[in-house]
Amino acid sequence: MKLILRQIPGLVDEPSSVWKVRALAIDDKCPVIEELLKWKQSEPAEFNKILKAMKVAAATRQVRDPKKVKACANPAYKGTYEFRAHKGQARVMFFYHEEEESLIVCTVPFFGKGGSAQKQDTAFKQCHELKTHFEKAQQ
């Protein structure tokens, strides 16, 4: 199977961007793109907030506003972050990767309903696992 970096459709790289935002897919399956499509239909306000957070993050070396980007508090999953729909439940877990290109790699989505703390931790865990695979392959 192949880990593939995909452009998020419609989210273009601006010349002034610090980071390029990409979504991680395995073969032809990309949970982030799939979930964004769902949110667009069912949670348009959250969809817009996530999109806004992605654009702010792409243009900023390090996002300070925790309403948009928050680092994982669990030290076991250090280096993972989430895009947040402020006052909403939509999240997209990601990590930064800086080599030849500066990338924000979106890995897994998360929608925080009931028992969300544990599910959120699982989403960070999955993000961290994908980060490990990705970084290992780049070496």
């Binding site: 192949k2 593939i4 780049q138």
Partner: peptide, 10 residues
């Protein structure tokens, strides 16, 4: 930068 990475199925 590798944008496609082959990983084992397991």
């Amino acid at each position: 930068m590798k944008t496609e990475i082959e990983i084992p199925d397991d």
